[in-house]
Amino acid sequence: MSEQRSKADHDRWQGFSTKAVHAGFDPDPQTGVVNVPIYASSTFAQDGVGGLRGGFEYARTGNPTRSALEASLAAIESGTYGRAFSSGMAATDCMLRAALRPGDHLVIPNDAYGGTFRLIDKVFTQWGIEYSVAPIADPAAVREAMRPSTKLIWVETPTNPLLNVGDIAAIAELAHAGGAKLVVDNTFASPYLQQPLTLGADVVLHSTTKYLGGHSDVVGGALVTNDEELDVAFAFLQNGAGAVPGPFDAYLTMRGIKTLALRMERHSDNAEAVAEFLSGHSAVSHVIYPGLAEHPGHAVAAKQMRRFGGMVSVRLAGGIEAARDLCSRTEVFTLAESLGGVESLIEHPAAMTHASTEGSELEVPADLVRLSVGIEDAADLVGDLEQALA
């Protein structure tokens, strides 16, 4: 169902916002409802043995609300197949199990998300999977990290939390030359700012909890691809392992997608203002934001992204104590994990989201603070940081 609907949507509409608002669901012919209903049913009546009405039998296998979300996800990522999961980590787990077998090898960023690293390092290595780390901003280093057994290159761009930028087209080319697949975690950029499948990636992954849902009220994940064989594997694991979103979760995520373009423009506007303010502050030793001309990945980001997003990281001149102090003093920025919601958040990655990387090659600097810049008034955000740094 999701494949047919997304293909039709691609044919009908070219604009991103039109797809975001309409893809996945047409007004119901009987009632005229313009918004996708929440089909709160675990089971579906059949027209005779094996006669599935609308293709649905049991909600773990498929649900109309989830199918609508999956079609929307495929459309906004310019993909053919979309699969929704109960969390971003559930999508990550499915991706790894679909692509890798004992003895296989993958390459991950040297500053990957802590949860991704933890799953690979603590779980998949027990099953005979090996991994290497590489700075994804350097395609030559990624190539050097590959082996004959490399089956997957895992890229975040921008990365979490150091906001490094990988050249998706260049890495896709070297991955395919080595017989590997490229998966891009597009969570930080969102489909509005960046479309990895159009740049050569094989799979796009999202924590839909973040910018796609956008309101800090739902947890979810997604995989989108044009590769039918991979999608068959995703569908089998999605059903067989059962890490699927409920219909209300799917509804909330789809509702968030409708305003994604508007929100990402505001997130980007505000992040630019915050980055500019912090760049001139004496308490800050380094501002990390791809939109700044001095960012080493600025040119690549400008090439493959529509804008530079809502995430800003900073290193404090006063070290770890200054970083912790900043996190405790903000009033508009809320001290919390996660990101991508309408409200601004602040966190200390070394002690929070990336604590699992301590002592590893991926350990993050102790003086680093990560900001998820929301859609509030920019003057209030800047003012809040100004008083917190005073």
Rank of each mutant, 00 (worst) to 15 (best):
T116F: 13
T116W: 04
F117N: 04
R118G: 09
L119M: 15
L119C: 03
D121F: 01
K122H: 15
K122E: 14
K122I: 06
F124R: 11
F124D: 08
F124Q: 12
T125M: 13
T125F: 03
T125H: 09
Q126I: 04
Q126P: 07
Q126A: 13
W127Y: 15
W127Q: 15
I129N: 08
I129K: 05
I129S: 07
E130P: 00
Y131N: 12
Y131P: 02
S132T: 12
S132M: 09
V133H: 14
V133E: 15
A134L: 07
I136L: 14
A137P: 03
A137M: 12
D138Q: 10
P139V: 04
P139W: 02
A140Y: 11
A140V: 09
V142C: 08
R143F: 06
A145V: 05
R147Q: 12
R147D: 12
R147Y: 02
P148D: 08
S149W: 01
S149E: 12
S149M: 05
T150D: 06
K151E: 07
K151C: 03
L152R: 02
I153S: 03
I153W: 07
I153F: 01
W154R: 00
W154S: 09
E156K: 01
P158V: 07
N160E: 05
N160R: 09
N160T: 00
P161G: 04
P161S: 04
L163D: 06
V165L: 05
V165I: 14
V165W: 02
G166W: 01
I168W: 05
I168S: 11
I168V: 13
I168C: 01
A170I: 02
A170E: 02
I171M: 00
I171H: 03
A172L: 02
L174W: 03
L174S: 01
L174C: 02
A175T: 00
H176T: 09
G178C: 08
G178I: 01
G178Y: 09
A180N: 09
A180I: 06
K181G: 13
K181C: 07
K181R: 15
K181E: 06
K181Q: 11
D185Q: 11
N186H: 06
T187P: 09
S190I: 05
P191E: 09
P191C: 14
Y192M: 10
Y192R: 10
Q194L: 14
Q195M: 12
P196D: 14
P196W: 14
T198N: 14
L199K: 15
G200L: 06
D202L: 08
D202I: 09
V203N: 07
V203T: 06
V203S: 05
V204S: 15
V204C: 14
H206P: 02
S207E: 04
T209I: 01
K210G: 00
